Amino acid sequence: MQQLIDNFDRKFEYLRLSITDVCNFKCNYCLPDGYQRTHNKQFLSGQEISNLVAAFAELGTKKVRITGGEPSLRKDFAQIISAVSNTKGIRKVATTTNGFSLSANAQAWFDAGLDAVNVSVDSLDAKTFHLITGKNIFQKVMQGVNDAVKAGFKQIKINSVLMKGLNDIDIDLYIDWIKDQPIQLRFIELMQTEDNTEFFDKHHISGEWIKQNLLDKGWTQKVPLSHDGPAQIFCHPDYLGEVGLIMPYSKDFCKTCNRLRVSSTGRLHLCLFGEEGVDLRDLLASPADKEQLKTRILEALKSKKVSHYLDLGKSGGTPHLASIGG
């Protein structure tokens, strides 16, 4: 079987698939002025998505994360979940959501075949949540998290982008919260993009201090699975939940890269920050083009670089995080 392995012997079993770049939040680190459409292209259809995922599965992809923008803004979101989860070879289907419609849909998404859900909760303080996201719906999002637990999801993760002066004082509150909650709490370092340099300079903070604090308090780092994401995961015998740290500015962050991205308009991105992408769309309409599609993906992978070079101050060609699904 052909497999997605690059020139640095990294194996890619994880696909992050964006199905829309539209978002209904105005997060200050991503879309502070709200969503502004910059293209006239239609987003990938259900059939195009099915053909794309089938090709990736035959190349060894085991996990698909459906992203956005906000993926639940697609009316056919549940059908997309079902199509992806029923693809031969795909073992895990996840999504990342802002939680706006989670409470109303958690059970339907679970029933459609969604295995795991990540919810963005950038503060446990309702006022700070409103300040960061532009939405005064903290309680609604948290109710969605509770409803996801009730729906039966085995894995629920809370994503929080670390921002100095905004939510870095919430850390102990977060960790106390997961003492009795089966939730993986993930702190993500703020990343610089083309449009947020001033904000980044003001609010970026490393997650290394959290890591050291956890280790000092008896937390243990877990060994990741081959299709896990980039987080360093920590567990503690006294806590039901876990803590994850995503630190893209840390040394050797790219060494364990195992994921590729496809945008909502059908472009393959080898790195969140690296390049303009390779167009796949002309090969997505028909299953008959699957072998040609696989060849194009394999050829593109040969040009993947060893690093994103964020530590050198480069932000690549990514205008903002919603543009290709974070």
Rank of each mutant, 00 (worst) to 15 (best):
D195V: 10
D115I: 00
P230T: 09
E291S: 12
F100N: 08
H130Q: 12
K164A: 08
K135V: 08
D33S: 15
D195E: 13
G34E: 00
A94E: 13
T318F: 03
K251Y: 12
M142K: 12
L131F: 14
A54L: 07
F56D: 03
G46I: 06
P319T: 04
K140F: 07
S101F: 10
G266S: 04
G113R: 10
N40K: 15
N86Q: 14
L310Q: 01
K62H: 06
G326A: 11
G316Y: 04
K62N: 13
D21C: 06
A300G: 08
S250D: 08
P224G: 02
I175L: 09
F43G: 11
F56H: 08
Q47H: 11
M191K: 04
Y35H: 10
V223C: 05
N7Q: 13
G325A: 05
V141G: 02
K26H: 03
K222S: 13
D176E: 13
N51A: 01
K135C: 07
V64D: 00
G165M: 05
L4G: 03
L225E: 15
G134T: 03
T197W: 02
R261D: 00
T265I: 14
P32Y: 05
S85T: 10
Q107L: 14
S103T: 07
V149S: 05
K294L: 00
Y14N: 15
G218V: 11
M191I: 12
V262Q: 09
F138N: 09
A151P: 11
F234E: 01
S82F: 10
L310W: 00
F153W: 11
D311K: 14
S303I: 05
S50K: 15
L298M: 13
Y239F: 14
N167K: 07
P237A: 05
L15A: 04
K157Q: 11
L215S: 10
A55T: 05
Y14F: 07
K302W: 03
K251L: 09
T38C: 13
S263D: 05
W177L: 10
K255D: 14
N98T: 03
I137M: 08
I233P: 02
F56C: 02
K251M: 09
G34I: 01
S18F: 03
H236P: 01
D311Q: 11
F110Q: 15
A54V: 08
H227M: 15
V53H: 01
G229E: 01
T295I: 12
I233W: 08
E242T: 09
L321S: 01
Q155L: 09
L166R: 06
R37T: 08
G34L: 04
K150H: 01
L293V: 04
